[in-house]
Structure formats: structure tokens, C-alpha cells
Design a protein around this nucleic acid. Structure first.
Lengths: 343, 343
DNA sequence: TTGTAAGCGTTATCAG
DNA sequence: CTGATAACGCTTACAA
């Protein structure tokens, strides 16, 4: 039952100072070994456990990292975000840090982060996420809020920002490397499957898309873009509808493995074969791509590495504050059996 | 920069008490509206944010729930655990609770929880997970540790325990309902694909397995059990090897959708068809089962519901401590296109 | 080797 | 309406 240092001290007849010091450093010379034993016994009997709030307050160091996610949709549902988190946690846990996830009920991504930050003072640092829903304006606002805390923080999953902030930049977040891979394989008529119509990420990708087409002198055709909402059903339906009308494409480039899988299902359903008639490439190297029949080639984005890097960078800034850094994570194409050379 | 109530109070010429009370209740009558405005200005200028550690210490209430996971392998990697967490978070966030994940470096599940608990006093409650790796002995030990904290807690993902503890019992964790479904469809020679050889869950399932076979007067055949380690490669390999020798089975019952998908791939690779030659059923109703070709029938376990229930029960125990409760979550079979009636 | 006491930032009580 | 002040439980000088 919530015992305190004071209770232990009283029981063994010493000061809280001695108890605290011993419990935090069993090798201390400050406490006699007789007293050490007594403390051990009392601590066990009283079920002593350190109060993290008292300790953090006293030390002005909490070993707690606040995770700020600008959305109030349920956490831990998105495979992509989970990989990021997994990377973060695996690295930070080694260094003895806990992770704190705040509640939020606001509706905009801006207010969400603000709300989470409201009761967060005392954390040793923060990691700021962004999602596909965020606009650049909100992202910058959130960064400003975070700067005002005076605590170290790093941003993750956000397109490159000119501001002087610690950033892990997942290059392929805004690249179309997988599209270029198809292009290099000789495909020209390609169906592009994006996630959502809104959000900053997709804007970057669209810009990139036009740039690539221009470079290769391929006309831009609005009809060859589909928004699959990262949903199996949506993607399946939209690709099916597309194929019912347009059979002239030779490849599909999807911005997630899930949507690639769904496209695969749609292609098969129309009687076409992969990669015989249509080549498909996904993104993420998630299990979906590996389990598909045929296994899908994909753009592995090194998401977990990104999470780990974020943690490492944050740790660096906490222990030894230095000038801001931007770290780039670049992925690679995983070749499996869903892409053919186009002759 | 970490400003405090005191700074605000000094700047506007009042006491910390007034500032605190106003900031926690904007409608208070204690503070004059003139003073309210001044406080607002100062709070904004100084970037005031409440220190969660000081506040929690003072109130003896933190609005923080500790999540105890008896393993130090990276979190957020397992789809099953993530669903549980998602359910928990979605419910607890509504009630204003934060989630705290502690680091741990120990090797045994018992020491892990102990370590996490060590610095955890001050949380308002705990949720104790168990994994397939835990033995019953460790689980019970962990529960005892938790009882010693005197704080409310609920256990999740643990087989039913006779002790008086709050428990969310996921019935299908230890059921073989999907196997019975195949049996009911007329299949008798069934390949059972379990996860791991160790851990308490699988022991329960094995016991259940023998019981069911006995009831139906089907001989137990050790060779018809494969351990897929929840791994695609392992499962694919082992099922392939199995089929190379034994072609007499008519169905496969896998304890995860992933392993079901992998089995499907293996079956197809040998030239057999699903469900023509072999029926397959998975477990979890994850996207894997939906995306497979053909889509796999599966046992939906209502994992997220379990997480939500855990959160709700914990909240109930925090706000209005009562006698312990055990809540049962039962799943249902999702019928898709991978199971045929065996004539 | 040990005890005393100040302080961490909030909240809550109580007297005005 | 308001200001002192004593908690909350722990850490850390500083003294002894």
C-alpha cells in the first residue's frame, strides 16, 4: 500500500535521506551495511515503490518522453505509426526512458497537440508526429508550440522543413521512387494509387509526380490517379471500376502495400494476370506485400529505423544539447514477383 | 521555458493559489475578472504549461495509467497487442487518462513487470498484460506484486485465474472454436497450426484440443500439430514439408491469420486448391485474412473490445472501487471463402 | 556514517 | 475575493 521513504525511515530509525540514497545506489558508502539490510527488509515488507511523480519533480528530470500525435483517432491502429513507435520505444527503453501518451479530445491536429502539451511540462523531451491529415500550417504551429517549452524535441514523419528543428526525414515519404522503378522497367501507362486527397504528404507527392512525368515527357493524365483511402474496400472498388473502362495501363503504383494488395485482388478479379498483364508495386514492405500471391515488389521505407533514429537524436539532444540536426532515412526497393520489364 | 505558477503570480501580483485555481477552473468566482485577464496574458507570454509531476504529486492523482507488459521485446510490433492497446487507449483517452509505458531490461517476464513497477508509484491504476511467453507461475507472481501496490488494476490476455482479480477474459484465447467449426463442417483429418511450444496459452489450447478430439472420438495424432511461431517463413516451410509427406488432411486450423495465410501459400504451392482440396481457417480477423485469395474464414476474437472493456473496468475501479469483476469477451466465426463442407 | 532541511511546482486549507 | 502556508514524496546540499 503506497508506502513512502518516510515510513521506511521511521521504521528502521534513520532519515529519509539515507534511505533514498541507498535505494538509488546500493553500493553507496553513506549507509552502513547493517542499515542497508534493515532498509531492504522494511522496503520489502512495506512494498515500497518509488513515486515517479515525486522523484521527477525533485530531480527536475523524469526519464519520461512525451509522444505527441496530432490526431485523436485511436492510436496503435495504423501499422505505419506502430512501426515508428516500435523503433522509438526499442531505443528509448534501452536508455531507461518511459513513453507517455496523452489524451486529446480536440478536433484539429493543431488543437490536439496544444491540448496534449498543456499538461505535459516535466517530460524530458518530446517526439512530434505528423499524419497525412496535417497541413503544413498546423505542423509549423505545433513546432512553434514545442519550441516554447524549451525542452528538446524531434519531429518525425514530417516533410522537410526549413526551420531549425531536429528532424528525422523519411525521404520516401514524399518520393515516388517506386514509380520511377516502374518507369525504368519500361512502363509508361501507370495507374497511381494515392492515399488521401488532403494532407501535406500527398501534395508533395503530387508535385513530385508532375515533375517526374515532365522529365520523362509523359503527359499528365488525371484519370490515372486514384485515391484509395488506405482502405481495402475503397481501393478494390475503385481499381475495379477503373479497369472496367481503361485496360490500357501496364502497371500500378500504390502508396501502400495494403492498397497494392487490394489492387492485385481487383486485377485478378477482372481476369488479368500479375505480372503478366499488369505489374504492381507497393510501399512499406509490410507483411501484406510478402503474403500476396504473387508476392509484391515494394518500396521498403525503413520506418522502424526512422523511429529509432528519432529516439537516438532526442537522447543526444537531452544529454548533450547541440545544434539542430536533420537526419535522412532512405529506403530501398524490394524486388519480388509482381513487376515485369515492359518490352 | 518551463515557467511556473509562481512566476505568473509574481508577474501579475497575486498568489500562486489564485493562479492555480483560475487556471484549473476558468469560471471560478475566486478571481476577479480583471485578474483573470492578467493571468491569461502572463500565462501566454510565459508559455505556462502545467507540470504534470508536480500536479500529480500534489493531488495524489495523476490521470496516468501504467501499462505493464511482461516482456522487453519491442512494443507495438504485434498486431494482436496493438489491437488491445488501441482499445484501451481509445476508451481511456475519452476519460482524460494518459498511458505510460515503462522501460525494462530484464529477461524474465516476472522480473520485467517487477522492474516496471519499481518506479511506477503514483499511477492511478495499471493494466497488466500477459504474452504467450508467460507461465502461469509468473502471471500469478505479477498479480501478487500488483496487489501490493494497493492500486486498482486489471489483467488482460490472461487465462482465467481463480484469484479475486479484475480480469478481462478473452474466451477464444484458449478456445478452439475454429477447429470445432471445421469439425462441424465434416472435416476430421485436420492440421493444427499453433504458435509457440511454450507459454501458458498454448498449454490451455492443447488441453482443449485433446478434450475435443476425445469428445468426437477422433484419435490424437501428434504429427498433425505444427508450431508456426507466428512467422510467415516458418509456417510456410513447415506446412510445405508436412504436405510433401501427408496429403490426407482436408483442413487446416491456424491460430493466427498470418499463419493461415502462410499455410494458404504453402497449399497453393503444392498445387492443391483452397477450399477445393483443403479448407483453411485462421484466427483474429485481421486484414491478412481479408486480403488473401481466397479470403479466409476466421475466428474474430474481438480484441479491441477486450481492450476497451479493460479500460472501462479499470476506470470503474478507480472511480468507484468495488468487488472484483471478471468480464468475458467472446468472439465469432467470420465465414469467407476458404472452408468447404466435407461430404 | 548520518541527520536536517530546503526545494521541486502544484493544490488545498484556512484565515482574512 | 484573496494571500499565506502546509502538504505531496523524493533528492540533495550541507552540517555534524
Amino acid at each position: 500500500m503506497g508506502s513512502s521513504l518516510k515510513e521506511i525511515a521511521e521504521r528502521v530509525g534513520t532519515s529519509t535521506a539515507s534511505v533514498s540514497i541507498y535505494l538509488n545506489n546500493r553500493d553507496t558508502k553513506r549507509v552502513s551495511s547493517a542499515m542497508k539490510k534493515k532498509i531492504d527488509v522494511a522496503a520489502k515488507e512495506l512494498n515500497y515503490r518509488k513515486n515517479i511523480f515525486a522523484s521527477s519533480l525533485s530531480k527536475s528530470e523524469s526519464k519520461v518522453i512525451g509522444i505527441l500525435i496530432p490526431s485523436n483517432i485511436p492510436l496503435f491502429k495504423n501499422g505505419y505509426t506502430n512501426s515508428l513507435l516500435s523503433g522509438i520505444q526499442s531505443s528509448l527503453a534501452l536508455k531507461g526512458y518511459s513513453l507517455l501518451f496523452f489524451p486529446s479530445s480536440a478536433s484539429s491536429s493543431k488543437e490536439n497537440v496544444q491540448e496534449q502539451l498543456q499538461n505535459s511540462a516535466g517530460c524530458d523531451g518530446y517526439i512530434l508526429f505528423s499524419t497525412g491529415f496535417c497541413t503544413m500550417e498546423h505542423i509549423l504551429w505545433n513546432i512553434r508550440e514545442l519550441e516554447n517549452t524549451g525542452k528538446p524535441f524531434v519531429t518525425l514523419n514530417i516533410p522537410r522543413v526549413s526551420k531549425e528543428v531536429n528532424q528525422i526525414i523519411i525521404e520516401d515519404l514524399t518520393s515516388l521512387r517506386s514509380l520511377e522503378y516502374l518507369l525504368d522497367a519500361g512502363h509508361e501507362k501507370i495507374l497511381l494509387i494515392l492515399g488521401r486527397t488532403n494532407g501535406e504528404h500527398m501534395q508533395f507527392i503530387l508535385t513530385e509526380y508532375r515533375k517526374i512525368l515532365k522529365q520523362r515527357k509523359i503527359p499528365f493524365d488525371n484519370r490515372r490517379i486514384i485515391y484509395g483511402n488506405y482502405s481495402h474496400k475503397d481501393t478494390f472498388l475503385k481499381v475495379s471500376n477503373f479497369l472496367a473502362v481503361h485496360r490500357d495501363i501496364s502497371a500500378i503504383c500504390a502508396m501502400s502495400d495494403l492498397m497494392a494488395s487490394s489492387s492485385l485482388a481487383a486485377v485478378k478479379a477482372t481476369g488479368l494476370t500479375v505480372p503478366g498483364d499488369i505489374s504492381i508495386i507497393g510501399r512499406n514492405n509490410s507483411l501484406y506485400s510478402e503474403l500476396s500471391d504473387p508476392p509484391l515488389s515494394t518500396l521498403e521505407m525503413k520506418i522502424e529505423d526512422a523511429g529509432r533514429s528519432a529516439a537516438d537524436l532526442l537522447f543526444e539532444q537531452i544529454t548533450n544539447p547541440a545544434t539542430c540536426r536533420k537526419i535522412f532515412i532512405s529506403g530501398e526497393i524490394i524486388e519480388r514477383q509482381s513487376v515485369n520489364e515492359k518490352s
